[in-house]
Design a protein around this nucleic acid. Structure first.
Lengths: 342, 342
DNA sequence: GTTCATAATGTTAACATTAACATTATGGAG
DNA sequence: CTCCATAATGTTAATGTTAACATTATGAAC
């Protein structure tokens, strides 16, 4: 079955030692040009492919990077993967792509698998319900190179690449406030993740700075997915009509899409009855019946920066831990009440 | 740096042989329960993680599958990957995700890398410009397990999982014909790939069976991407106005999106001036200003079937080569002239 | 207290490769 | 022709694990 040719087989076929073959193929010095030529020809004719498994065992390097994504479906993450891939493709690394499916246990399982496969480093974006920071700490202490991206756990000794969530959430909330909205709700991310906390903090700060009412029943945890956004919005619209907010800041676009569905099903119109803004600039955002105002995250660049940082960590022992923050861009469309005629 | 604990270290710490530790950890028989307990405790306290690299070298199996995707950005492929991942997650395999970026040379490069890493099998969807079938044949002859998906090279000894492209293209073309369109153009895929050929054949057969004109200047190769579709449609609309077709069958949705852009830029309306249909049911299709009529491909299922077939090939020597064809579903929207009032 | 079956543990070699050291050729200087 | 520097090639051991065989301990039957 596995008819893979080895250096030894080439060596035997040629009547030389394995080392000579190894040196010839790996372009080392001190090999006679004639010998090299003969070896390379033989290697080609026998269909030799170097065995990276054995190389890895000897060199203690696999030239492999593990990526843990919470949700492959999310277009934001496929963009990020694309950025990672762009960097990795330039180097001699390969990508192990794994999916935690927003489940912390599965996340642990895939991380352990990646460790077993002795990846040189891991790029990690936490699952929605990850809370076991001790696990992350042990992981980091064990010496593995880790870079968190987008959904980070900060200040536990690992580098993070994220966007300026607090500021961005502040700005987009302020945008709604500038439109004159005073009753603003928030569909929040999970409280355990920095990304959820930060966006919530930005939202809250905007309200406070403008002395607007902050109501606990207008803060509902939706998580990052469409169904969560749908349910969260339903919860809000279950309030008496007089208690309804006039605008909503969703933690991300999928949650906003879910909320939009709920708003429609309640017979309300966007943005006339309820304005809404998202966060991600999902590919669908501008195509919605009422195009969604949202925060554009530089997903591709984020993936690139994270991969670059990780490779630097792998290749240089003195590379420092670092938090890299990227800036976002507001995409003003109709769902917030701007361009209302469109 | 690499402070990975080995079986030997545990053995030494415990004063037993490496084999005893190996047996205890791998749940083999013939180990005293007391010994096993002691070993497992020590392994845990020392932070042991099994070294899959060494295991792979011994067992000649890496429990790893390589995936070659032509274009990560394409939502169709992220759906496929998602399906592959769903299967792989149930097994003990891991995924090497690679991207050929629609470039045959890069495709060869990543395949060689996957071979070097000794993946147990490869899932491959050809790049747009892949023509070197000899290379594929050599690959297959070398004994590697390969399953083509979506973009297949058939009858060269490898299994394929694809959709019924010819029939689907026939049906969607017939749908346009049933609307009364007689002048129909085709933005075709690359001629070297089965997928392009099949869709073209289906298109052509529909025209022939209905005795409609078939014009060579209405067949333009667009490739699979938006810019290709845009350029191809421009080429068609550069014809004298009297030679314009009334409807267009695009080889896939991105190409259709590009064509729609071109049509709009020519000041024409869809479907009143030019009707258009796509192929993929991209996530954006139903959200377009004029929702795109298209063929829904079971991307997730396709990924699943391909992964399942590959794993069967890996695990059973007598698993036969097989062409698996999945059926599609027409998604009738407005761009073809149906639901025209919507 | 032998004997012997079997459970428990140990030893060796192998997987494919390379680093480090060892040996053997080569050919020019004297 | 001998010497010797150096180029070319060879040998050994190591990477972490396990299969296959080898040895030792255990304890029950006689």
């Amino acid at each position: 079955m596995n008819s893979n040719v080895t250096l030894k087989q080439i060596a035997e076929a040629l009547g030389v030692s394995t080392m000579t073959v190894s040196r010839a193929i790996n372009k080392k010095e001190n090999v006679d040009e004639k010998t090299r030529k003969i070896v390379l020809e033989k290697a080609k004719s026998m269909g030799y492919t170097p065995n990276h498994v054995a190389k890895s065992l000897v060199s203690q390097k696999t030239h492999t990077i593990g990526v843990v994504i919470p949700e492959i479906h999310h277009t934001f993450f496929s963009e990020v993967v694309s950025g990672i891939e762009a960097v990795v493709h330039e180097t001699e690394y390969e990508l192990f792509l794994t999916n935690s499916g927003e489940d912390a246990n599965r996340e642990k399982k895939v991380i352990e698998a990646l460790r077993s496969k002795r990846v040189d480093g891991i790029l990690l974006s936490c699952a929605e319900n990850s809370v076991d920071f001790e696990y992350y700490k042990t992981l980091i202490k064990s010496g593995i190179n880790i870079v968190f991206f987008d959904r980070c756990v900060e200040n536990i000794g690992a580098s993070c690449v994220s966007i300026n969530d607090e500021t961005s959430a502040f700005q987009i909330t302020k945008h709604l406030i500038d439109h004159g909205y005073k009753k603003i709700a928030h569909l929040s991310g999970p409280k355990n993740l920095s990304i959820g906390q930060e966006r919530f903090r930005g939202f809250k700060r905007a309200l406070e700075e403008h002395k607007l009412p902050f109501r606990n029943d207008w803060i509902v945890e939706s998580g990052f997915r469409e169904d969560g956004g749908f349910n969260a919005m339903n919860t809000i619209l279950d309030l008496p009509k007089s208690d309804w907010p006039r605008a909503v800041v969703a933690v991300n676009d999928p949650a906003a899409f879910g909320a939009m569905k709920s708003i429609k099903e309640h017979g309300l119109s966007i943005p006339d009855d309820v304005a809404i803004v998202g966060f991600s600039d999902d590919i669908r955002a501008e195509l919605m019946p009422c195009p969604l105002t949202t925060v554009q995250q530089p997903a591709f660049v984020l993936g690139k920066k994270a991969a670059e940082k990780l490779i630097r960590l792998i290749e240089h022992d003195d590379e420092p831990v670092e938090n890299i923050e990227l800036v976002t861009k507001m995409m003003i469309r109709s769902s917030c009440g701007s361009h209302h005629n469109s």
